[in-house]
Amino acid sequence: MLHLRPVQFVDTPVGRDGEVARLAGGLQWFAAYEVIRGAERRTVPVAGFDDFAKALPDPQAERAALLAHRISAPRASIQAGERVLRFDQPQAMAILNLTPDSFSDGGRHDGDPAAAAAAGVDMAAAGAAIIDVGGESTRPGAPTVWEGDEIARVVPVIERLAASGTPVSIDTRKASVMEAALAAGAHIVNDVSALLYDDRAAEVVARAGVPVVLMHSADPKRGAEGAMTGGNALTDCFDWLEARIEAAVAAGVDRARIIVDPGIGFGKSLADNLAILNGLSLFHGLGCPLLLGASRKRIVGALSGEAPVGARLGGSVMLAVRGADQGAQWLRVHDVPETVQALRVWRGMRDAALVAR
Rank of each mutant, 00 (worst) to 15 (best):
G120H: 10
G287Q: 06
V204K: 00
I299K: 00
D110V: 09
T43Q: 08
V205T: 06
F87T: 04
L354Y: 01
D198W: 08
R207H: 11
G231S: 11
S72W: 13
I276P: 00
L270R: 01
P45V: 10
D171S: 08
T235S: 15
L4Y: 01
V336T: 13
L290T: 01
G226K: 07
V340M: 06
A94N: 08
M215R: 01
A68T: 09
F103K: 10
L196H: 15
R108Y: 13
V212C: 15
T166D: 03
L98R: 02
E19L: 13
A275I: 03
P45T: 15
G315F: 15
W330K: 04
D122W: 14
R296V: 00
G293K: 09
G287M: 07
N278D: 12
R350W: 05
L214N: 03
L277R: 11
E40P: 02
S304N: 13
G18Y: 08
A202M: 02
A163C: 04
A227L: 09
F52N: 06
V44Q: 05
A65H: 14
A356P: 00
V121I: 11
E203P: 00
P6S: 08
D239W: 05
V7L: 06
A117N: 14
A247G: 10
I36A: 12
G279I: 06
L292Y: 02
P220L: 06
G287H: 05
A80I: 09
W29F: 15
R222M: 15
A163P: 03
A115N: 06
A76K: 13
D101H: 03
N273F: 00
A202Y: 00
G293I: 09
M123L: 07
L274V: 13
V333I: 11
N232W: 09
D88H: 13
G134I: 02
L98N: 00
P289F: 07
V260G: 00
P13I: 10
P337G: 13
G81K: 04
S176G: 10
N273H: 04
M215G: 10
W346F: 13
F103Y: 11
D351Q: 13
A302N: 10
P262M: 11
E203T: 07
W146Y: 08
T12W: 13
L290E: 12
A76S: 10
L286F: 04
A256P: 02
A24P: 00
A65E: 12
E40Y: 14
A184D: 02
A311Y: 00
D191C: 12
S295N: 08
F49I: 04
E40T: 08
H216S: 12
